[in-house]
Write a protein that binds this DNA or RNA. Structure first.
Length: 468
DNA sequence: TTTTGAGTTGTTCGA
DNA sequence: GTCGAACAACTCAAA
């Protein structure tokens, strides 16, 4: 008698190093891979049409990978308990295998499912699962550096052998695969969904003597270079296993030729640990989704028209505006730019970080409740291990430092293409004559600054002092 | 329980 | 141009 199981896919859109899938294969002859489109998520204020398009592309790619192994993806829509119960009846599956998830929404959903149906939770979207990194008194860490030390003291998780040959043998008599009409991924979005693409990107980043991971220390903050791995959208949907990514980075440390290379790879690994840190924080403190982790109340001003200018990239600060255009057009933003734009919103404009958090979630392909919330609260100075409140980014000097020639700015703000280098970070300082020659008149082709940074800085300092 | 050292990513000012 | 201090105490983690 052959046994059938459901592999419930959530944010683990991959076949390699998939612990839930492997566990299902170990105990069953037939596997039903199922993805459930939960319409509650589509209606959420945090939803992003482009992220959904990326997800559907990822599912198509997963389906292509399943075919040679006699597997077939079942795509369903609705409420998970209902969908899974129906599927278990029609298929006589005995067990559901799934990777745990940690957001408050996912947590509520999963507790409901396990109360009604047999589920085995296997694996984790973090490298070290939440709950595994605790202080000696059993409490969670809320400061990164000690967390990271304890994290690194744990045995590195293994990457299971690839089971690319084992067939899934999905039963035939199920609802046919359906891919409802979804907005397609826009052409200018430079991310192709899927496990293969993720693997190629990882290899390009970590493999070989001169690979980018060894340049990471210097290159990671340059807006005008591709110094980061750009793996975040793939990690977001589990198109690649975080354990595999970590193990590959560790191997590159082994291969490092000198201490500087080793240090660069370690710096990059640190970013993976930050990702785990915020997954753990959200798991232990779900309230961070509602509001500040610390600081009772910052007196936000929440000016709607300034918020609109920020969203559209019309603040008059080129590095801020270029970054906001990059987000809108590509669904991704450089990490340095995330800090600059977030600092500008929360400190210069004194707008509630939750407004910015929501906007980022609506546009980022990698938009993830844990990392996004952690990043915003860090910049706003309200988070677990937050930046001190007096750390306020200067959008002009940040631009000069991290985009010295203005090529990042010119790429996303074509109106500034002919502005001389001397004025590229402060176009409003251009004399009339130069404005005319550059074809960029301030107030017409490009906005004047919506706020004076130096005055805004002083205002933020006193507002935050008050909130203390 | 008390003490001690430390804490992702910055900016500005004055010597 | 370079450099160190101030920004502001506060809380955390570990001994």
């Amino acid at each position: 008698m052959s046994q059938t199981a459901i592999w419930w896919i959530r944010r683990d859109l991959r076949l390699q190093d998939n612990q839930a899938l492997n566990a299902a294969l170990e105990a069953n002859q037939k596997i039903i891979p199922v993805f459930i489109m939960d319409t509650r998520l589509l209606d959420s204020p945090y939803a992003s049409p482009q992220r959904v398009a990326f997800l559907f592309d990822g599912l198509r790619s997963l389906q292509a990978g399943l075919e040679p192994r006699r597997g077939r993806l079942t795509l369903q829509e609705g409420e998970p308990v209902a969908v899974l119960s129906r599927l278990m009846e029609t298929s006589s599956a005995r067990m559901i295998y799934a990777e745990p998830d940690y957001s408050p929404f996912a947590n509520r959903r999963d507790r409901q499912v396990e109360a009604e149906l047999p589920v085995e939770w296997v694996g984790s979207p973090a490298i070290q699962p939440p709950g595994s990194v605790l202080k000696s008194n059993g409490e969670p860490y809320i400061v990164f550096t000690p967390f990271s030390k304890a994290w690194q003291a744990l045995p590195a998780p293994g990457v299971p052998a690839i089971r690319s040959d084992q067939p899934l043998d999905t039963p035939e008599n199920l609802d046919s695969l359906l891919f409802p009409d979804q907005p397609a991924l826009q052409e200018q979005i430079p991310f192709m969904a899927g496990e293969l693409e993720a693997k190629q990107r990882l290899n390009a980043f970590v493999r070989g003597a001169g690979s980018p991971i060894f340049e990471y220390t210097q290159a990671r903050n340059q807006l005008d270079q591709e110094g980061t791995s750009q793996l975040s959208p793939y990690l977001r949907f589990g198109m690649i296993s975080p354990r595999r990514v970590y193990s590959a980075a560790r191997q590159s440390i082994q291969a490092a030729k000198n201490p500087a290379d080793r240090k660069a790879a370690e710096t990059w690994i640190n970013e993976l640990i930050w990702r785990d840190f915020y997954i753990h924080i959200l798991h232990h403190f779900p309230r961070v989704r509602q509001g500040n982790f610390r600081m009772q109340s910052v007196p936000w001003l929440n000016d709607i028209s300034q918020f609109t200018a920020w969203k559209n990239g019309e603040t008059g600060y080129p590095v801020v505006d270029a970054a906001m255009r990059q987000l809108l057009q590509t669904g991704w933003m450089h990490n340095r730019a995330r800090m600059i734009t977030a600092s500008f919103l929360t400190k210069d404009l004194l707008i509630d970080w939750r407004w910015g958090e929501r906007w980022f979630m609506q546009h980022l392909l990698d938009g993830d409740p844990a990392s996004n919330n952690g990043g915003w609260q860090w910049t706003a100075g309200t988070g677990t291990d937050a930046a001190p409140y007096f750390r306020i980014f200067n959008p002009i000097s940040q631009g000069q430092r991290h985009d010295p020639k203005g090529s990042f700015i010119r790429r996303w703000l074509p109106k500034l293409a002919s502005v001389p280098d001397q004025f590229i970070h402060e176009p409003s300082k251009m004399p009339d004559e130069i404005q005319r020659r550059a074809g960029c008149r301030i107030g017409k082709d490009y906005p004047a600054p919506i706020i004076d940074h130096h005055a805004a800085r002083e205002r933020a300092l006193s507002a935050y002092r008050q909130a203390h």
